[in-house]
């Protein structure tokens, strides 16, 4: 197996709550390879979203090191780390949230194009991505003109259109009904397989979690000294 797309070593993060520093993550170590999918589960407040934020550079760890697509970051937060993280998010890391992944002023197609443009891709084919996700007819609609499931599928189209090495999905089906959620999940896993990228998925949904290759329960790896 090749070197991991993502390698995390001794990652710790604390939050200040009511004047006290409360550890959320402590000494977490993991690695994810291309084509591999990892589900992060745990009860609310266990640090799922925090972990995802740390993995895409939106938050800084207190301790530990992260290596993504060959780029290494440690807790010292070098002056250029923000720029490197941004570059990674533009080209290599796709992020999907529970909702509001789309610019409301742009049509689905325009959203995909914008994302692709940011990823530095100039070739066409954005419409193909939408078609592959079953949104060919909705390509010129605006986010408020499509259903929640369609919007999430469009968000997936955007992510895949940028040809990412790693997808971070935070409760991507959290606001959808069962049926739609299954549809979206199906799309996600199919595409992930097809493109061979790595996927890290934070979810409460055990059905969704069990579709992943591996599972990390943050509640179970409760850091020492915590509650």
């Amino acid at each position: 197996m090749s070197s991991p797309v993502l390698a995390v070593d001794g990652l710790s993060k604390k939050f200040i709550s009511a004047g006290q520093r409360v550890p959320v993550l402590s000494g977490l170590t993991l690695g994810v390879h291309s084509g591999e999918s990892l589900a992060i589960v745990g009860r609310s407040g266990s640090g799922k979203s925090t972990l995802l934020n740390l993995l895409c550079g939106l938050q800084k760890p207190d301790e530990g090191a992260i290596t993504v697509v060959g780029e290494s970051f440690d807790s010292s937060g070098n002056s250029d780390s923000d720029a490197r993280w941004a570059e990674l998010r533009r080209r290599s890391i796709g992020v999907v949230f529970q909702d509001a992944n789309l610019m409301p002023a742009l049509s689905l197609l325009e959203n995909v194009r914008l994302r692709a443009h940011l990823a530095g891709l100039t070739a066409g084919g954005e419409r193909d991505w939408l078609e592959r996700l079953g949104l060919g007819a909705e390509a010129d609609r605006y986010p408020d003109q499509v259903s929640g499931g369609q919007a999430q599928r469009a968000a997936l189209a955007m992510v895949f259109a940028m040809a990412p090495a790693l997808i971070l999905a935070d409760e991507p089906t959290g606001s959808l009904d069962r049926h739609t959620a299954d549809e979206v999940a199906e799309c996600l896993f199919t595409m992930q397989r097809d493109t061979g990228c790595a996927l890290i998925l934070a979810t409460h949904d055990t059905a969704l979690a069990t579709r992943c290759d591996r599972l990390l329960d943050l509640s179970a790896v409760k850091p020492s000294g915590a509650g």
Partner: peptide
């Protein structure tokens, strides 16, 4: 939406 741009990697 501006933050979203940041998440999408716009410096």
């Amino acid at each position: 939406y501006f933050r979203l741009l940041g998440i999408w990697g716009l410096p």
